[in-house]
């Protein structure tokens, strides 16, 4: 992955507009956050292969970045995004990494389902 280039990510988002898109969205502070006393709560959530269709998708901020996808009945939102990759399969991978390179947030879009 490379540090986010806003215009490349924006054009990649545009490529997914008004299509059936598979979504991976997650945030985590690590399964051991409480155990290692890094936090007083272990929190995390993920959705893998949620199928969405969005007519508006924007990346914003000065880094770390935010992304909002406007879907028919609501929104998909992520903040803290620092790095991106577009892979050979045409997927857009966005992630936010902390100072130790650990993943804290991820938002990924694909036209075919993500592997389980």
């Amino acid at each position: 992955m490379d540090p986010i280039n806003k215009s490349i990510v924006q054009s990649a988002l545009n490529g997914f507009l008004n299509r059936d898109v598979y979504l991976h969205l997650e945030t985590t502070n690590g399964a051991y956050a409480v155990h290692r006393k890094e936090s007083n709560m272990t929190v995390g959530a993920y959705i893998r292969n949620g199928r969405i269709c969005f007519g508006r998708g924007i990346i914003t901020g000065d880094g770390p970045y935010r992304v909002g996808l406007k879907i028919e009945l609501g929104w998909v939102y992520a903040e803290g995004l620092t790095d991106f990759e577009t892979d050979q399969e045409g997927r857009l991978l966005l992630a936010g990494h902390d100072q130790d390179g650990r993943l804290a947030v991820a938002l990924e879009l694909s036209l075919s389902p993500f592997e389980l």
Partner: peptide, 8 residues
């Protein structure tokens, strides 16, 4: 570290 993997 530095990170070389991604979620996929």
């Amino acid at each position: 570290r530095p990170f070389f993997a991604n979620r996929e």
